[in-house]
Simulated scan of single mutants.
Amino acid sequence: MEHRTHQKGVPKALVPDGAFSYPIAHCKATRWFGFLLLPEFTLLAFSSALDPLRIANQLAQKPLYGWWVLSETGAPVASSSGLDVSVHDSLEQLDKSLTLFVCSGNNGVRAATDNVVSAIRRHARFGGQVGGICTGASTLARAGLLKNKRFTLHWENQPGFVETFPDLIPRRSLVEEDGGLLTCSGGSAATEMMLRIIKDDYGEDFAIAVADMCLNALSGDPKRDQRSSIAKAIDSRNPKLLHILREMYANIEEPLLLEELAESAGVSRRHMERMFTKALGEAPASTYRKIKLDKARALLAETDLSVIAVAAATGFSSASILTRHYKARYGETPYGKSRKI
């Protein structure tokens, strides 16, 4: 990045002061990211991606990461919340050394001009890495960069995306990585995406320290679905499905049998299973188990209960059964450093 010259001046990698530090013994050369802001971009998603880089530098007290914020012309860009955000420079100064993230919002398919799409296509053609934040994947699709790739974008905009690009099917996950292509669905998923990058660069312990500063958690499953079971059930507008889910949430410590859940909604067990498969993509038993595991995770984080007590409070017949399912879902066991059995 030192060779870069332009009118507004090269931004320096920011290393802010902080009360807490996490020394890094062997630092790599500063890794630079570009953030291309498109009109009506989502401010939350952009800041959620940017701040983990700033925090990483603060903790290490070294310039681990740098960021270069761009717009098409170099002028400030209006976010979807109506706030104008200043940038470092115009897209003309794009350097192939940057990993370029396209940031957009609800108007994702139409947010970029043809000139912007061409510039992104050139960037990829000459070896630059690209990614999308929130609906940034829509611009990448217009640039022809998503063919045969795994990618994601915000669930709200996926139906319109599929109508526009019927041959491209987005994933429902929070974060996707396919080779050099990185995409996330926006919001806190942008933080998770950057935490994954930091973990790859400097290890899990450092990434966890950054996550703690973000008041976030380093997830063991970045591919988990963007929406909860309740949110997807509301979207299905199926009152019987919603009724069964409410019964699941209301009966965690002493779970109901599947036959009892079906009977409470006035349907057969087979019909209930078809409803869940159609709306949620999984069997009702799987959904019920996830609800119990989420409650167990909350109890483990927020209380000093033993694992046995948490298992009993969340409807698991033993700590070993809870542990097996917990590790399968979260990639770790429920036993913390000081957690009682």
Rank of each mutant, 00 (worst) to 15 (best):
M193N: 14
K290P: 04
L168Y: 03
T135S: 12
K340H: 04
I341P: 13
G315S: 04
M194D: 06
K327D: 03
R297C: 14
A309H: 07
A279H: 04
Q58R: 14
V69K: 08
A190R: 00
M272C: 15
F46K: 00
E177N: 04
R269C: 02
A13H: 11
K12W: 00
G9F: 12
I133W: 02
L280F: 05
A119D: 03
G9T: 03
D304M: 10
L145S: 02
A56D: 14
L215H: 13
K199L: 09
G132M: 01
G203K: 07
A312F: 11
A189I: 04
S86P: 05
I230M: 10
A262T: 01
C184Q: 04
A111H: 08
G281L: 11
A328D: 13
R224K: 06
A250C: 15
N238D: 09
K62E: 15
E72T: 08
A233M: 00
R121P: 00
L280G: 01
Q158L: 11
G136L: 08
I252W: 08
A312W: 14
I133N: 01
A111Y: 07
S306F: 11
G186D: 03
S318C: 02
P11Y: 15
L43T: 06
H88T: 00
E156M: 10
I55G: 12
I234F: 15
A143V: 01
P63I: 11
G136I: 10
I308R: 07
V15G: 09
S79I: 02
N115Q: 14
L36V: 06
S81T: 09
A328N: 12
L91I: 09
T183S: 08
T135D: 14
G108L: 06
L256K: 07
A119Y: 03
T135Q: 06
A45C: 00
G315T: 02
A285Y: 07
K96L: 05
L94E: 08
K8F: 15
L242R: 07
E273F: 14
S185N: 02
A233V: 04
P52H: 00
A301I: 09
F101E: 02
S318V: 03
H3A: 11
D167Q: 08
K240A: 13
P159Y: 13
R196I: 05
A190S: 06
T314D: 07
K223V: 12
P39C: 03
V310N: 05
K12V: 05
A29C: 03
K199S: 01
A19M: 15
D201Q: 10
G127Q: 12
L38P: 04
R270L: 06
R54V: 13
K147R: 10
T323S: 14
D200G: 12
E40H: 13
P170S: 00
Y330A: 06
A311E: 01
I208R: 09
I197K: 14
A45Q: 01
D167R: 15
D304R: 13
K28L: 12
P222R: 14
T183N: 08
V307F: 10
A119P: 00
S79F: 00
K62F: 15
L257K: 15
L195G: 01
T303E: 03
S185M: 13
D235Y: 02
D304P: 09
L174Q: 09
V267C: 09
G266V: 11
T152V: 00
L140E: 01
